[in-house]
Design a protein around this nucleic acid. Structure first.
Lengths: 207, 207, 207, 207
DNA sequence: TATGAATGAGGCTTCATTCAT
DNA sequence: CATGAATGAAGCCTCATTCAT
């Protein structure tokens, strides 16, 4: 199921991992190729055997991560049928990967805009798949809601993707508890009954 | 409620607004002071009359935005008593400001890590206030929940802060609808009954 | 004998003194007009009422110091007749002024080359007077020596002018003792008998 | 006695030599790295392969020069025993090097204060060796003098180090004559008999 | 007299990238 | 495969100086 890893690939993987760490720590634009050379143990010019430009390096990290996440998601979704379970699977899939790969997670969440042109387009194609999948699940979960689907979908991904800004492994719950919490909040929220009309009154709120 | 505006302040404010736009578009590290000079109509060196360093400029933008947001929040919270209303006020306060100041919003959400040292510490002090306020509201909303408060709080802010990555004014609902949607999802989710125990079963989920 | 000091002059003098301190501490090229504004308590642009350029400021410091030194020297030399006494007067005149005006001393000794054009020429005219005076004294002191007069003169001024690099008031003797020491060394050395010819042999020295 | 020269070293040496020339001509602070790039034939950024900062460049020049001077001095001092000869060796060692390396000489003498922090400390450690060596020689030369040793030592180095301000190869004597002159003056002066008490009288001198 | 505000020029340094070896 | 050496472009920032007030 896994592609054979040639020595070539292993080295590339190590470089991608080191680069993800550097990009996560300093930010893509603030990190230098020299930083990556230092972190990966490869010489500055040696790195250019593995990628053609700094931007391609970022692309490789993001695309590889998104690909893995997407492959796993689609595989796992095939094993469940109820929309509640599908949503749980989606959330858990993301969070499990994120908690295990925090540097990559941050690079994927935070450096979306750092790509341009075809690199960005290719990554966005993968990201749209995630949006579509979540949209379909939400639609199954509550086909009759009056909540805006696009807003709800991004609210969901916001909960998930914001993780990189606050999660600390030594302090916060593990990925399963995280996923359980977010799943419970979102499912109840999204398919919940109409809220109390009184609560909706704008009259009492300051403009 | 109205701060006196000296001529000095007005010019500084214009520079901060232009800078926020530039930082939002290109990212803090990728934006050059030259870009800001161009966008603000001030000469490169002239800018340094108003701030001491690029980092201080980012700090001024973030601190000023957070201060405004916080002042407004605290004022508005005084007018409501029910936790549901408080949560709605909090969400609406954020989203209204964000939709009206999208550049600043992005800079505040996205460039948190771009500050260092005392600048970062000062901004973090303000941010912690937001976390504390939200935590108190959630606690009032459902004092008996078994959901982790910290996780829930950041899930809430994730929903809100992620906005800058996807919101497009010409396509998406306005701030009130946005706030309504997120409020409904989160309130129902957070104070909802226990979820169906069957749903919690791990057995059916892939690792 | 002194020119009347108008309020104008007093302020200029204060600025020159503060500037000398700044130039002494940081060096002429490394000191900024801003540093001088800070040290003198005058605003940046206000300084330009008192001088036309940074270089003129340096010139004013050097020229004023050299003028004072020269006036005093010529006056004091009139009171003695023996060449030994004249040399002592010259050395003491310099060292007394230097120890009392260490910042100016450093600026005069160290920043000779920092002036250009007419400023430099004017200062050099005054410096040449010092060289001429010393040369005349040495000639009187030992008209029959085979020592090179120019070399000897600059050896003398080297002893004196190097003071700014090492003298520390809290540790070293006062100006009188300093002057006495240098005078004794130089007088004895310069008018001394021929040195032991054996000592002159080059044979024993490594190339 | 001959250090192995790798290609790396040769290039660095050439850069140091060109830099010393530039620093000597314009002064450290007034010289730009661009000037050095021009003088050395290396591109502006290419220089930074050889040193980390302009200050380190100055340090390398000073430290290398002082190291050479010190090595040669210690070697040559081993070949003589009489204090008179030692002093002559010391003066000749300095002057020979200075006349042959006038740019470096000026940078070493004139830019002492342009270094800071650890660079300055390291250079000062080497300079103290020179002071100590001279102090020991003077002590041997006249153990019973009432002249202040520290003052005398710096008077000696003042004579020598001031050279860079006036020496012109096409006009002045060569290093041997220079060394002979200064040696004769200083030796006679330092070990000379007590001076005439009448000459010491303060009465006749102007304050 | 004095200064707040402003600027063009230039400072040092780092950047991503290349290429001969 | 890998790298030491190199570079043009660009980065942030400070400079001496000016001028309207």
């Amino acid at each position: 199921m896994r592609l054979d890893r040639t020595p070539y690939d292993e080295k590339l993987d190590a470089i991608l991992a080191a680069s993800a760490r550097v990009f996560a720590e300093k930010g893509y634009h603030n990190a230098s190729i020299r930083d990556i050379a230092r972190a990966s143990g490869v010489s500055l010019s040696g790195l250019y055997y593995y990628f053609q430009s700094k931007e391609e390096l970022l692309y490789l990290i993001q695309d590889h991560g998104l690909g893995t996440l997407l492959d796993r998601l689609e595989e796992r979704l095939q094993r469940v049928v109820r929309p509640e379970d599908k949503l749980r699977v989606l959330i858990r899939n993301h969070l499990t990967y994120f908690v295990s790969n925090m540097a990559q997670m941050k690079v994927m969440s935070h450096e979306a805009d750092s790509l341009t042109g075809e690199f960005k387009a290719q990554v966005n194609r993968k990201k749209r798949r995630f949006v579509d999948i979540a949209g379909e699940i939400l639609n199954e979960l509550n086909p009759n809601t009056d909540l805006d689907l696009r807003v709800s979908t991004f609210a969901l991904y916001g909960m998930i993707n914001w993780l990189y800004t606050w999660y600390r492994a030594e302090r916060d719950p593990d990925a399963d508890v995280l996923a359980d919490t977010m799943t419970r909040i979102f499912i109840e929220g999204y398919r919940g009954n109409k809220v109390d009309p009184a609560m909706m009154s704008e009259a009492m709120l300051p403009s």
